[in-house]
Every structure is written in structure tokens, then in C-alpha cells.
Simulated scan of single mutants.
Amino acid sequence: MRIYLPATSAGLRALLDDGELGPAPLTAFAVTPGLREWYHDDDVEALEYAALSEAARASLRLIDADATAAWRRVVVALDAAEDQVEVRDDLDRGVVRLAAPVIAAQVASVHVDDADAEPAVTAAAGAITAADLGDEGAQEKVDDADGFELSWYAPQELEQLLASF
């Protein structure tokens, strides 16, 4: 099952140095029944993009909580066995929980903002909690960050990517 795990630059560093992201349980996003119902689309690629987008938004919350994180959204795309994934659409659309830490061999790709997104991501990370509570001005800042596409990186490019932060 393809999973989209929100992360930060610090999480990527742990993945590179330790070979895993954890500890479990980890909250992530995937194409779940709740996401399918909300998105009203049968195109798998569109549904996966929606799950990736939800993970990118969740990355803002992690950035806001981690003073050491670079001001770039990070999503780790990985493959997990279905018996290691619990669908939690009751929490929000597309939410899943992973029962085990993510190991480097599971990683299919990494998606990260380019440097030009940093001002928007900085503003959005500081506004994400207020946006979650319905503040329209804060939501505009989050939407501005959502307007930036994440760049795709292969797992073997992780060290080079981290050097660019």
C-alpha cells in the first residue's frame, strides 16, 4: 500500500543516519475509503496526489513544532504491508497509522519544497494552527504554501538533498 508520511528535514536526516523514521505508531496519509468518498474521483493518480497534498499540509504542523527543521515541507512516499496499516478516516480523510517504524528500504521517493517556497512555508507553518481553527487569514497563508509543488527525489538522492538545505 502506498503511504505518504509527513516529515521534516530533521526526519530525513534521521532516515539517512539511522535508516529509519519512528517511533511507531506513525500518522500518515493514503488513498482510503474516506479520501475516495471526499474526492469523488476514480483516477488513482489523482487520489494519490490528494493523499500527498494532505501529507504536505501535515508537514506544516511538524515544521511548526520543530525549531531545527528547514522551512520546507517534506513528504516521504513509501510502500507498507497492509497488515501494518490501520485506516483512520475517523480522524480525517486519508489518515492512516503505521504500526512499525519506516525503514529506508520501504521508501519509494521523497517530495520536498524548493528553496523559493521557504517564505510561504514559513508563514504557513506559523499559521497552521489558527487555520485549523477556522481563521480565514491564516488559511490564506496555508493556501499560499499549498500553491507550491513539491519536487520529487529518489531515495538515493537523500544525502545530496539534505546538503542543499
Rank of each mutant, 00 (worst) to 15 (best):
A7V: 06
T8V: 08
T8K: 02
A10V: 15
A10C: 08
G11T: 07
L12G: 03
A14T: 14
A14P: 00
L15S: 10
L16G: 09
L16A: 15
D17Y: 01
D18C: 07
G19K: 01
G19N: 09
L21R: 02
P23T: 06
A24N: 08
L26Q: 04
A28Y: 12
A28N: 07
V31S: 04
V31N: 03
T32N: 07
T32V: 13
T32D: 10
T32H: 03
G34E: 07
L35C: 10
R36N: 05
E37M: 05
E37I: 00
E37D: 12
W38E: 15
W38R: 15
Y39V: 13
H40R: 15
H40M: 14
H40G: 08
A46T: 14
L47H: 00
E48C: 06
L52A: 13
L52C: 03
L52W: 02
A56I: 09
A56D: 06
A56T: 05
A56L: 05
R57F: 01
R57I: 02
I63P: 03
D64V: 00
D64M: 05
T68Y: 12
T68M: 13
A69K: 01
W71C: 10
R72G: 12
R72H: 02
V75R: 09
A80Q: 03
A80G: 01
A80W: 04
Q84H: 11
E86L: 12
R88D: 11
L91S: 09
D92Y: 11
D92I: 01
G94Y: 03
V96L: 05
R97N: 09
R97Y: 05
L98D: 05
P101V: 10
P101W: 09
V102H: 00
V102I: 14
V102G: 04
A104L: 11
A105T: 12
A108H: 10
A108Y: 00
S109C: 00
V110H: 11
V112T: 06
D113Y: 12
D113L: 13
A115G: 02
D116E: 14
D116T: 14
T122N: 04
A125W: 03
